[in-house]
């Protein structure tokens, strides 16, 4: 069974919600990034989203843009992101979703990325600028491998399309909480609740909510609305703002515990 499916099955059985953590691969450098990822997995993260840095991240806000630039400057690339995934897989069973813009995957070769991602132990791919209408070639390349192509739904997505997205979704459906790029803040809980209820009613797969989740309070408010929450910029920001020599894995782990506590406080039954 695919590790993402296994994770959601177990969580559902335990009546718990998933904490999905986004981190940019190679931020601030390969070795530190690996240490942060390992610690995150040991601190309550259920699914890792490993972001492949890209020169032109049009769906990302300033925090993840800056992380991409740091990682690229440190020599990160798609091939090295795969090596990082493989290194993480050596020590953890946490599902890994490769999070990328389409161009690096396309340029690398879709058959090649499918094969190398599978052997690195990747369980899903999420391509932010690849709507289902353009995803045929990648879906074909992934066919027959245990890698889900994760789909996204947005606040602007209308019911017919939500149904279409949900029908073809693999692993979980990524529900974008608000219009705009990635980043912290800007959440209107009531608005998110309304849209999440609609999406949940139309989607037979787990639904996770992401964009703008920064604190334990956000986690507390949003976790009950779906099957999990996704946190990115709030973690990445810790790396950007830490003083030189700081214990980055420790800082990230503390934030993850804050979010986990927020979620569990609202979701234990």
């Amino acid at each position: 069974m695919n590790r993402i499916d296994l994770t959601f099955t177990k969580l559902a059985a335990a009546n718990r919600k998933a904490l999905v953590a986004y981190l940019t691969a190679g931020d601030p450098d390969f070795d530190t990034s690996l240490a942060i990822l390992r610690t995150a997995c040991a601190s309550g993260v259920d699914v890792v989203e490993l972001g492949v840095p890209f020169s032109d991240p049009t769906c990302d806000g300033p925090v993840i843009q800056a992380a991409s630039e740091r990682a690229l400057r440190a020599g990160m690339s798609l091939s090295r992101s795969l090596r990082l995934a493989a290194a993480l897989r050596e020590t953890v069973e946490t599902p890994i979703v490769l999070f990328s813009y389409y161009n690096p995957l396309f340029k690398y070769g879709l058959a090649r990325i499918a094969e190398e991602a599978a052997s690195a132990g990747v369980d899903g791919m999420l391509v932010v600028d690849l709507p289902p209408e353009e995803a045929g070639p990648l879906a074909d390349a992934l066919a027959g491998r245990s890698i889900h192509l994760i789909r996204l739904a947005a606040p602007t997505t209308r019911p017919d399309r939500i149904r279409m997205l949900a029908d073809g979704a693999g692993g979980f459906l990524y529900l974008i909480s608000r219009t705009g790029v990635t980043g912290t803040g800007g959440l209107d809980y009531d608005e998110v609740a309304r849209h999440a209820a609609l999406v949940k009613s139309l989607c037979p797969h787990p639904v996770c909510i992401g964009f703008g989740i920064s604190h334990g309070n956000d986690a507390h408010a949003l976790a009950p609305l779906a099957d999990g929450i996704i946190v990115g910029s709030a973690l990445v920001r810790l790396i950007a703002e830490a003083p030189a020599g700081a214990d980055l894995p420790g800082l990230v782990a503390a934030k993850i515990r804050e979010l986990r506590d927020g979620m569990d406080a609202s979701c234990v039954s």
Binding site: T58, C59, P131, A154, P155, T156, T157, I176
Partner: peptide, 8 residues
């Protein structure tokens, strides 16, 4: 080739 938010 855009994010889902812009499709509509």
């Amino acid at each position: 080739y855009v994010g889902e938010t812009l499709i509509a």
